[in-house]
Nucleic acid binder design. Sequence first.
DNA 1: AAGTGGTCTAGACCACTGA
DNA 2: CAGTGGTCTAGACCACTTG
Lengths: 233, 233
Amino acid sequence: MNPKTGVLYQVILSDLRDEILTGKRRPHDTLPSENELSSRYNTTRATVRRSLAALEAEGLIRSWPGKGYFVEAPAHNSFTLTFSEDEPEDTVFYKGIHVIKADPHLQEIFQFPAGSRVIEICRTIQKKRVPAAYDIKYIPYEKGSPLIEREIDYAVFPEILAARTAPFSFYTKMKIGAELPSEQVARALHCDTAEPLLVVERIFMNKSKICIGYGRKYLRQEYGSLTAQSGYL
Amino acid sequence: MNPKTGVLYQVILSDLRDEILTGKRRPHDTLPSENELSSRYNTTRATVRRSLAALEAEGLIRSWPGKGYFVEAPAHNSFTLTFSEDEPEDTVFYKGIHVIKADPHLQEIFQFPAGSRVIEICRTIQKKRVPAAYDIKYIPYEKGSPLIEREIDYAVFPEILAARTAPFSFYTKMKIGAELPSEQVARALHCDTAEPLLVVERIFMNKSKICIGYGRKYLRQEYGSLTAQSGYL
DNA sequence: AAGTGGTCTAGACCACTGA
DNA sequence: CAGTGGTCTAGACCACTTG
């Protein structure tokens, strides 16, 4: 490694990346072949391939065996959204945690027979002493096993479920909507029933596509909204 | 390569991945060392490292030089959201495309001096002959260069901007909100002003953090809402 | 000092593409 | 057929962590 320019494979990587990001190489263009790059940088195919593999992982290029490497078109439609149930600086109040009979809506989500029971956990989240969000979670109730009161020890949803199963054994589907609050929610948030709220609905599924958790969070928008990003930098 | 089991590095990869996904190896556990895995699979470090690199790219493990590889905690707070301006099956109506003076809000976003002008593009999107979304876009107006009418040829925002710059040279920030529609929007969508709408705001920035495009899309929720995913499978 | 991962070389053989 | 990428071997030297 040259102390001035850094590690070789990263030099090649950032050279190629720059050429793509600045538009010198545009989507559908081909890149120089591995052999071409190897001799250009006085190195071996293995080192060049490291750079190309990294570029491919970033989604900037794709390889066609037998043909070469091609610049991809940027995915300006795919966004990364970060959603936390609550931030460290928030104050959380538990409004209640109890076992209830699943209503028809919950029965459908959990694919439960009539009369099944679920654990319901309600919370309000305050930002700077002002109610900013209201949160309801449902978990299947299993007779016997861990006491309901224990669930409260885990602040947020993924942790509750990770404790019940393996941490990687489920995934989440999110649905974002806009709603006017019900009387109950409006009271909890000290807001008017005419103030539109963001509603974030999450369904946690295991690998068998069985719902193992369901939650809704109602957000007042003055106190933090949902944001997402797409693209480089 | 063994024709029965497939390519070696992928065998190692899926072996390790399964052990993590099923919870046999849990977050903060260490993996066997590269040398250990090499001899266990009768191969070289290079091949083992390919598997580990792939696993690291998937975010399941992380390497600590001098220490080893460790299982990561799953990121259940990071979601992937797909947002398209319109789907192929939608019908799009251009309500107008013209140059206007930037109001204070737009001046702030684009960091424009007073009196600057922008191109405004308004559209309604119909799903099954029913107005489902209303869409406004703003682009800086540059005297001379490409005729305004040309912009209409490009259906969606990223393409308009890619034509003006390099396709990878900008990124997008999205903000999601809930709003009651203005009179104008309600008329365009044939809906009540009391019906809460989802509002998706996008700001397109170049590498110098200069805004090069701004858009708002108002969505009626009966006709498709926003969804996102997190986790494996 | 022994073990770990990080970088790199110099080969080899294979399947696939295109002229 | 020559050229491309895909897989793999068998070494080397380095910086870092740990006992």
